[in-house]
Simulated scan of single mutants.
Amino acid sequence: MKRNSEPMSEALKAELLALEAMPDEAIDTSNIASVTDWSGARRGMLYRPIKQQLSLRLDADVVAWFKGAGDGYHTRINRALREYVERYSKRA
Rank of each mutant, 00 (worst) to 15 (best):
L54Q: 08
P49N: 05
S34K: 11
E83T: 11
L56N: 03
G44H: 00
H74T: 02
M8Q: 15
G70T: 07
A69D: 07
T75R: 15
V35D: 05
A14N: 09
V63Y: 00
L56V: 12
G40A: 14
M45D: 00
G70M: 11
A14D: 08
A14I: 06
H74A: 04
R42C: 05
L46S: 08
A60I: 06
R43G: 04
A21Q: 07
W65Q: 03
I27P: 02
D59A: 11
Q52F: 02
I77T: 01
L46Q: 08
L12E: 12
L56Q: 05
A60F: 04
I32S: 12
D59V: 12
Y73Q: 03
E20I: 02
Y73C: 10
L58P: 00
I50R: 11
D71F: 02
W65D: 00
A33K: 14
E15Y: 09
D61H: 05
K13E: 05
R48S: 05
Q52T: 01
T29V: 15
G44C: 04
M22F: 08
G40K: 11
R82L: 03
T29K: 14
P49K: 03
G40F: 06
L54R: 11
I77C: 02
N31Q: 14
L17K: 13
S9C: 13
D59I: 02
R57P: 00
K51H: 14
R57I: 00
K67W: 00
D59H: 03
A60E: 07
L46T: 03
P7T: 05
D37Q: 08
R79P: 01
R57K: 13
L16V: 15
A21N: 09
L12W: 06
S9R: 06
G44Q: 10
A41H: 08
A26M: 10
L16P: 06
L58T: 03
L58M: 13
L54V: 15
A69P: 04
G68V: 04
R42H: 09
L54H: 14
P7N: 06
I32N: 13
A64L: 09
S30P: 08
L56R: 02
R48Q: 06
W38D: 10
E20Y: 10
G72C: 05
L46F: 07
D37A: 14
R76T: 02
V35C: 12
A14L: 09
N78W: 03
A21I: 07
R57A: 01
R76L: 06
A80F: 02
S34R: 12
K51Q: 10
R76Y: 00
D28R: 14
A33R: 14
R76A: 04
L19Q: 12
S39A: 13
I32K: 05
L54Y: 13
L54W: 06
A14Q: 09
S34L: 10
D59T: 03
R76F: 01
A64P: 00
L12C: 10
A60C: 06
K51C: 06
L16C: 08
Y84I: 04
A80N: 04
I50W: 07
